[in-house]
């Protein structure tokens, strides 16, 4: 079973629909036991990190995700999911899951014409190959909506960057976990193809 982690963070059904489109049957689950035993996991989310982290912990989903990660379950984080996997977020100064070393910080563009949230279509540049990014060309555009962005401590965890006043990490990963700041479910064909590669990904980094 593919589990979409339900922690009351945004519209999980959009992700479920996109999965269906690429032939993946996904279930939205809030029970940590089901998350832990899932064959693969999508960890999506939009909105505020604070309530998201609180709800994750209340439901015991933080431990379930960690345990799934440790046993090698392929995990795909999207948007807020790409932020909560880090150690800490500056959004309300919250400790997060800590699967990837690093923090999340807010956009503070010097250029006043750059608006926050960063909302709309922007290009990505792949910084190192990843099985899920196969076929993505530099400049391919994906849909973003966020005010905070991931800052992994190690360049080795960064797989793609995007320019918005500053060059920020828009895709990151570690072992069997991969995450995108952009919305795969709202990025047209390019987003769907990353999802469909995830459907067959065994969690290994060799392509």
């Amino acid at each position: 079973m593919l589990a979409i982690v339900d922690y009351d963070a945004g519209n999980l059904r959009s992700v479920q629909r996109a999965c269906r489109k690429v032939g993946l049957t996904a279930e939205i689950v809030a029970d940590p036991r089901l998350v832990e035993s899932a064959e693969r996991i999508i960890f999506p989310g939009v909105g505020a990190a604070t309530s998201a982290v609180d709800t994750l912990k209340e439901r015991g989903l933080d431990k379930a995700l960690l345990s799934a990660f440790q046993k090698g379950t392929p995990i795909l984080g999207i948007c807020l999911g790409a932020q909560i996997i880090l150690e800490h977020t500056e959004e309300d100064d919250r400790d997060c899951l800590g699967i990837v070393e690093g923090i999340c910080t807010r956009f503070e563009p010097d250029d006043p014409t750059l608006k926050v949230p960063h909302m709309g279509w922007n290009g990505v540049e792949v910084t190192q190959p990843h099985p899920l990014l196969e076929g993505v060309e530099n400049g391919d555009e994906f849909y973003f909506v966020h005010s905070y962005f991931p800052r992994p401590s190690h360049a080795g965890n960064v797989y793609a960057v995007t320019d918005y006043g500053t060059s920020f990490c828009s895709a990151l990963g570690r072992k069997n976990l991969f995450a995108t700041q952009f919305h795969l479910e709202k990025s047209g064909r390019f987003g769907l193809s990353v999802l469909s590669r995830f459907a067959h990904w065994d969690g290994c980094l060799t392509t």
Binding site: R17, R20, K21, H183, K186, S187, L192
Partner: peptide, 8 residues
Amino acid sequence: VAAQTFIP
């Protein structure tokens, strides 16, 4: 629409 289009 949500089932058939994958843009915002």
